[in-house]
Simulated scan of single mutants.
Amino acid sequence: MPDDRDLNRTKSPRPSSESASRRMSRTGQRDTAAEMKIRRRLHGMGFRYRVDQPVIDHPRRRADIAFTRARVAVFVDGCFWHGCPDHGTWPKSNVEFWRDKIETNRRRDLDTNRCLEVLGWKVVRIWEHEDPDVAAERIAAVVRARLHESKRG
């Protein structure tokens, strides 16, 4: 398993503009708008979960939403940061840095999925642009199925 420090070796470039710098610095890692909408719907459906939960022993490997008993880890991925095939964009400034950063995030996501699956977790990845009602229903179905399996097994 690669060490996360090896995945992000590129030095940060100078921001292309002050507004870009402000926009990037305001982007949080947790409690994003997409995450909050999904969490509200799940809570309204009666589900209880952990937030920003470490699921494996590596930096930046925290599930946005974790159902520990069912062993379901949910990640709500930002279209820009994780390279959404439908909505991801490639910046025109500092192109090499951003391509490396986004590709590194993608590799880390795949590695996290593999690690969790080996540990018996089910991973659900949601894009930030997905309808929160549909996403919550998808997550709920996975959690219910996992809980049902654990009762039989």
Rank of each mutant, 00 (worst) to 15 (best):
S25Q: 12
E137A: 15
K101V: 02
I56D: 00
R69H: 09
I126A: 01
G153M: 14
V72N: 01
R14C: 03
T68Y: 04
E128R: 00
D77N: 14
P54H: 14
T27M: 12
F67T: 01
V74W: 00
F97E: 04
P54Q: 15
H58C: 04
H58P: 01
E103R: 15
D100W: 12
R99I: 01
R41N: 08
F97V: 01
E128Q: 14
D77A: 07
D111G: 06
S21V: 05
E137T: 12
T112Y: 01
R50W: 03
P15Q: 13
V143L: 11
V72T: 02
E149D: 11
P91T: 06
G83M: 04
R48K: 11
L7K: 05
D111P: 01
R14A: 12
V95L: 12
H82G: 08
D77I: 00
E128M: 08
P13F: 12
F97I: 01
I102F: 05
Q29C: 05
W127Q: 09
I126L: 08
F97R: 03
G44Y: 08
E96G: 08
G46C: 06
R69P: 00
R50M: 03
R71E: 04
D31V: 07
P85N: 09
L7Q: 05
D133V: 15
R30M: 10
V134A: 11
D109M: 13
R30V: 11
E117A: 15
T89Q: 10
N113Q: 14
S21K: 15
